[in-house]
Amino acid sequence: MFTVFKTILGRDLTLAMRRKTDILTTFFFFVIVISIFPLGVGFDKAMLQKMAPGIAWIAALLASMIALERLFASDYEDGTLEQMLLSHQPLIIIVLAKVFAHWLLTGLPLVLIAPLAGLQYHLSGDEVGIMMLTLLLGTPILSLLGAIGAALTLGLRGGGVLISVLILPLYVPILIYGAGAVSTSMEAGSNVQAYLLLLGAFLILALFFTPWATAAALRIASE
């Protein structure tokens, strides 16, 4: 079982390395969105500080969603998804490996670039730390939940827009607690631990339950 996980993970990482533009596009999408926001809302320092958590998180939501469209699409088009569905290895492990690879390629870079957003929005070191921590806990949930949407919309015309309609409402809790933790950390004497614990709990729940839904959706899509 672990061999399968490792093989699929390695496969998706190799594929991404041979076609780097896909990863870089998501990465720069995130950077560009957070960079143009101040141009629209103004450069007032206090306001930017206040808006930073929400903007960073919404940019992360959108970036993760854009990347999700390709999660299963190319495997669906060339028939390798059929081969995965028919392997007698547990489909859930395969799904987890693919989602993990996807997160390593699109979620983790967002966590690492978060300090840049901190600079642009005048956040303190501690606040940047909290933001990175929430993104570290939250972006895997986005990938796990989003995988359901990606599987449901596989091979459909305009699948990308459809994913956003299906999945964005479901991202609401992650957005509230992810951005909420950073906002709270700006107040003196605040306690962000509760937010982080809750995000952690969501992550565990998502790890256990979403792969089932994704696997079921993949089987339906390949009929």
Partner: peptide
């Protein structure tokens, strides 16, 4: 059907999170 089921699980969580944006 799958989507509606996922929605059923998520709706209480969404309600809870909006109802209580500060878990403390």
């Amino acid at each position: 059907a799958i989507l509606s089921l996922v929605g059923l699980v998520m709706l209480p969580i969404i309600y809870f999170s909006i109802n209580c944006p500060n878990p403390a």
